[in-house]
Amino acid sequence: MFNVVLFNPQIPPNTGNIGRLCVNAGAKLHIVKPIGFDIGEKAVKRAGLDYWYKLDLTVWENTDDFLKNINIDKCHFATTKTDKPYFKAKFNMGDYIIFGSETKGIDENILNKYKSRCITIPMTKEGRSLNLAVSSGIVLYEAIRQNFINGKLRMKNGKLTGINE
């Protein structure tokens, strides 16, 4: 299982869509406070449709609490402030794919502390960033692709298997 982490999400439909993505990809969602909306808000559930109740979700009180309770060596920090493309990172089952808020990204102190763990999605000079839900899907499915090729994941009847092993 992979872990998708949202530091301080601000837009309910993004979080709902990411929740739906996690359910379909067999990933766990971690939301790190502060959150810019009520987690029970209808917009989150609407964007996640009927998937929200199936979501494996953990809500953390703050970034420090999250970072001291996980293995940093299993983290990938998504940012526009690095030159390492996400497809050059090696993803293993259990890794954390971390995204910052839609408005501010990940705190620069964290990015500077864990520079070697930072990844980016290449874009042209015309763009500033991609939508958070789109970015989450791009990187999460690269992690799945790598583990599918390496034999850790399989397909049976059109569904991923081995994802929770």
Rank of each mutant, 00 (worst) to 15 (best):
E126I: 14
T58V: 14
I70L: 08
V44D: 01
S116G: 04
R154M: 09
G26S: 03
S135E: 06
A143H: 00
L21N: 01
K104L: 09
L6H: 07
K90N: 10
N8T: 10
R128T: 14
N8G: 05
N17M: 05
T63S: 04
D50Q: 01
P85Q: 13
E165L: 07
H76N: 07
N24W: 10
I70F: 14
G162A: 07
R20C: 02
G40H: 12
S129H: 05
Y96G: 14
D83M: 05
G94S: 08
F66N: 04
L160G: 01
K68Q: 14
Q10D: 15
N8P: 04
F91M: 10
Q146G: 05
V4Y: 02
I18K: 06
I163N: 04
L160A: 06
G94D: 12
V5G: 07
I72V: 10
T80S: 05
D107N: 10
G105N: 01
D95C: 05
I39S: 11
N92G: 06
I98W: 08
V5T: 02
K88F: 11
P12V: 08
M1P: 13
L49E: 05
Y114T: 03
S136M: 00
P122V: 15
N157C: 08
V134T: 11
K28P: 15
G36D: 07
N69Q: 13
N24Y: 05
I35D: 03
K45D: 02
K115E: 15
T82E: 04
F7S: 12
P34E: 00
E165S: 05
I144G: 01
I39N: 15
V5N: 11
N109V: 09
I106R: 03
I72D: 04
I18W: 02
Q10M: 13
L160V: 04
G158Y: 11
F91S: 03
G36T: 10
V5K: 07
S129E: 02
E102Q: 11
K33G: 06
V139M: 01
A25D: 00
I97A: 00
F87C: 12
D73C: 15
A47Q: 02
I98L: 02
T120D: 06
G158D: 08
T15A: 11
E102L: 06
K74T: 02
T15Q: 07
N3E: 05
G100I: 00
A43I: 15
I18F: 00
A43R: 13
K74M: 14
T15G: 02
S135V: 04
I97P: 05
I121Q: 10
Y53L: 15
T120K: 11
K88W: 12
K113V: 08
V139E: 00
G105S: 07
V32N: 03
L160T: 01
T103D: 12
Y96R: 08
G162T: 00
L140W: 09
I11K: 01
R154E: 13
I149K: 13
N24E: 08
P13K: 02
F2P: 09
N62G: 07
S129C: 14
P12R: 09
I70G: 08
L130D: 09
L160R: 03
I119G: 00
G137I: 00
N112F: 14
N71F: 13
K90Q: 12
D107P: 06
G137F: 05
M155T: 10
K113W: 06
L132G: 00
D83Q: 12
Y96S: 01
G19D: 01
